[in-house]
């Protein structure tokens, strides 16, 4: 397939020099925007076949020499370097045509990572943007862009950048307060929004208390918070371990309404500890 195309293009190139000598010429713009209308002016008489060959597209059209041929909007929507050949029965004329992306951005592909991040992380949130025109051609010339990250507390981080070769990126800090951040990228009148969840970090101070209830030991933590004061989310597992003479009882309890509580056997002399993940809390020795 590629070999055939190369032979075809080679044949056109050889014939092009013959065509110039026989008075057939063509005139067309060297560069147009993707999808724009354009026209081809030819000289001479009779019929000819026009080929426009580019990486993503090949166009073939029968035209009348000596007349102007119009191409409607959207005929060539894909950006790239195209070769143009005008073939008559006895000769071939060639030219080149560059289809460039539209200057007006149409879509912003915004990759924001991660979708969920712990609070207070430096440069933890990254955003990369790719700018495309309406035909989804990557716009490669420089364009100004701004990134904005607003947290629930109202704090906003803003970075201005320039799109180079179709892309730009930035990094932002997660703030101390948990909640849903709005990560917005703006370019002219276009904007794209992503949501980044700022979640609490590890429990900072894990404190439990014990009391006797119905013959059993009722253990309950204080409201569990991270080091920034955010409530650790419900469902986070807290492990209670009771060690007594020759035995041990363990239970993994998820936080419910901010605290973890459980009933365990009341063993005199038992040592009770509490932990969540790798964070250890206080210890209690229970004596009857």
């Amino acid at each position: 397939m590629n070999c055939g195309l190369a032979l075809l293009l080679g044949g056109f190139a050889l014939a092009a020099q013959l065509a110039a000598a026989q008075g057939v010429t063509m005139a067309m713009p060297e560069k147009i925007e993707a999808g724009a209308s354009f026209s081809l002016q030819t000289t001479g008489g009779g019929k000819a076949t026009l080929y426009i060959v580019g990486p993503p597209q090949v166009l073939k059209r029968e035209i009348q020499l000596g007349a102007t041929t119009f191409f409607a909007e959207g005929t060539l929507p894909n950006a790239g370097h195209y070769a143009v050949f005008l073939a008559t029965e006895s000769s071939t004329q060639s030219a080149s045509l560059d289809i460039v992306p539209e200057s007006k951005p149409a879509t912003l592909d915004f990759l924001a990572k991660p979708s969920r991040i712990q609070v207070n992380l430096h440069d933890g949130i990254t955003g990369a943007i790719y700018v495309f025109d309406v035909f989804h051609n990557l716009i490669t010339f420089p364009l100004p862009v701004s990134f904005e990250l607003s947290s629930p507390s109202g704090a906003m981080q803003k970075r201005n950048a320039v799109i180079r070769e179709g892309a730009s990126w930035t990094a932002m800090d997660s703030t101390a307060q948990q909640g849903m951040d709005r990560f917005v990228v703006r370019m002219a009148a276009i904007s794209t929004v992503r949501v980044v969840a700022q979640v609490p970090g590890d429990p900072c101070r894990l404190q439990m208390s014990a009391r006797l209830a119905s013959g059993q030991l009722h253990l309950a933590t204080e409201p569990v918070r991270d080091c920034s004061g955010n409530a650790v989310p419900d469902g986070t597992v807290v492990t209670f371990t009771e060690t007594y003479q020759g035995g041990q009882s363990t239970v993994d309890v998820p936080l419910k309404q901010g605290i973890a509580e459980v009933q365990m056997p009341a063993q005199s002399g038992a040592m009770i500890s509490v932990a969540s993940g790798l964070v250890l809390g206080n210890q209690i020795r229970w004596e009857k």
Partner: peptide
């Protein structure tokens, strides 16, 4: 987060 399973008297 349910069920909670306790390990007793290990």
């Amino acid at each position: 987060a349910d069920p909670v399973i306790e390990i007793e008297n290990a």
